[in-house]
Amino acid sequence: MRTAAASLDLVRPRSVDDALRSIADDPSLAPIAGCTDVFVGLNAGTFAGTRFLDLWPLEELREIGIRNGAISIGALATHTAIQESPAVVSRVPILAAACREIGGAQIQNRGTLGGNVANGSPAGDTLPVLAVAEAVVVLRSATQERRIPFTSFFTGYRQTVRRPDELIVAFELPPLDQVQWFRKVGTRAAQAISKVVMAVVGGERPRVAVGSVAPTVIRCTRTEAALAGGATFDEASRIVESEVQPIDDLRSTADYRRRVCGNLLRRFGTETQR
């Protein structure tokens, strides 16, 4: 049952600083960006908050640029903007690939990278990419800025280290020279929530991250170590199958997810011919 719109307040800051002050004064404010998650929750009556802080007009949070060799992507960059960014396409094509598979055009035009991460769904499609890219999450409050490695950002199911008075302002992705690979499995060819979503970076220090197989996106460190130690992809596949902790839910089964994880890693191996 839909939440009544009249019962909802919206604070509309004029600048990022203004926004940070508002949320410092009232940490119960829920930030909103493209609202593609928030409004689904409100329409279904499952979103708890009633007071909102509007980030959408804050242009400075939309920027995508190169800073000290890293790509910096503003929290408000939409999935469309990310796909269209030459910097992203040339350096982290798997991020563009992930954004291309999020919802349909309407969702990509509104949904943001910050929202995808802050929403914290284990099925978020950009999350495994950020995990293997070893991105840094830039959190800012009225008083300080913190830079958190993406891999320590999530602490549990939809739980993050973000404090109530902080906003995600940007993500920084260090240069990636190694081969990179991404695959989303959602059964329906478009507009599907992932049953398994995997990102892999090859090279000396291989990195494997998987979504939808645990309460949060996970880096498969045992698998990575095995690969780094020269394990074959068949061996690594078996390790990844034991490393993920999927469950049966509305959308799929634990068995299926486990097998697909193994298969995908094997596919990465054959496609990148290591």
Binding site: L10, R12, I32, G34, C35, T36, F39, V40, N43, D54, W56, T80, A105, Q106, I107, N109, R110
Partner: peptide
């Protein structure tokens, strides 16, 4: 519910009036 918002297609059911 698709409409164009500044020329881009969006779902009007997910856009707050403020935007």
């Amino acid at each position: 519910c698709t409409v164009l918002l500044d020329g881009e297609p969006v779902c009007a059911c997910l856009v707050p009036a403020a935007h």
